[in-house]
Amino acid sequence: MYSRITRCIIALLVLASCKSENKKEESNTWRTKKAAIENAAHNQLLDVEKKEGWKLLFDGETMDGWHLYNGPNANSVWEVVDGELHSNTNDESLTAGDLVTDQPYDDYELVLEWKVAGNGNSGIFINVIEMPDVPTAWQSGPEYQMLGADHMDYNVPEKRPGCLYVFQPQQNKVEVKQGEWNKTRIKQVDGKVTFYLNGVLTAEEDFSTPQWKEKIAGTHFSKYPEFGRTTEGKIALQYWYFETWFRNIKIREL
């Protein structure tokens, strides 16, 4: 039989060992999580995404699949930096304008991540008609609104992030993560569109109805005959004088 002193010593050694193992486990867990964050793969498709029909709209290295609206050969403000699609606002020799997909889409689901400067303003235009006599993407394509939290319109109900710009306030309130990546999802089927910001439903509209035409007639967009008239078109990323970043742009046709 062990003496009382010996038993105490053994108990202390066991306790110290447990604490050491706990610390080791916590340390290993933290290192694993940290490594996962640091080594997260962007602009790539998982095997399950490929099976579901997802395709990359941005490969993280080139501008393939995109061009400047009405300026496919222009030396534009858009560039790829560190695996991110970036709007360069500092070089005035570059051609400013919205970036548009080479291909049109009708029924689809689009997901992407974005950041914008604190007082920045950007957006995603859908169903864009690219024509020489339509000078800008916003004159044909309804807009998913993107704003920095310091922008003067941030708290204007019909101009909040994730809104169908000008037409309706956020369906459910959600804030942007300033300085961090925000997640957007846009789904359109038979003209019925839904917008999401950071997992929250922010807008719903049916572009195929007479009511939609009536809504257009009540806004300044009524001056532009091509605006909102189709449920098929190109997707455009808005350039608006402040830096914007995009990554993980994926689409699947439905």
Rank of each mutant, 00 (worst) to 15 (best):
S93A: 08
Q44T: 15
L57E: 01
L46P: 06
P72F: 00
V48F: 12
P72K: 07
L46V: 04
E84N: 10
E79R: 14
G65N: 13
H67T: 03
S76T: 13
N75V: 04
E52R: 14
N75L: 13
W66F: 05
V77G: 01
T89G: 06
D59Q: 05
E52C: 05
V77C: 11
D98C: 11
T62G: 09
S76G: 14
H86W: 08
D47Y: 10
F58A: 05
G60P: 07
E92H: 14
Y69Q: 01
G65A: 13
Y69R: 06
T62K: 06
S76N: 01
D82E: 14
D98Q: 07
K51I: 11
L94I: 08
V80H: 06
H42S: 14
Q44H: 09
G60S: 05
D64G: 10
E49W: 11
V80D: 12
M63E: 04
H67F: 00
N73W: 08
H42L: 07
S93I: 01
E79W: 01
E52P: 03
V81S: 07
L99V: 03
V77N: 09
G83R: 09
T89F: 06
L94T: 01
Q44N: 09
H86D: 05
N75W: 03
W78Y: 04
S87E: 08
T89Y: 03
K55M: 13
D82R: 09
N88L: 01
N90E: 14
S87P: 04
L94H: 02
D91E: 15
D98P: 02
N90T: 14
W66M: 02
L85V: 02
L68I: 02
L68A: 05
N88G: 07
G60C: 04
W54M: 09
K55D: 09
G71P: 09
P72W: 00
N75H: 13
L85M: 04
G97S: 12
N88A: 06
L99H: 03
P72Q: 01
L46E: 15
G71K: 06
N73K: 14
L85P: 05
A74D: 13
G65S: 13
N73G: 06
L68M: 08
N70H: 04
T62F: 05
D91C: 07
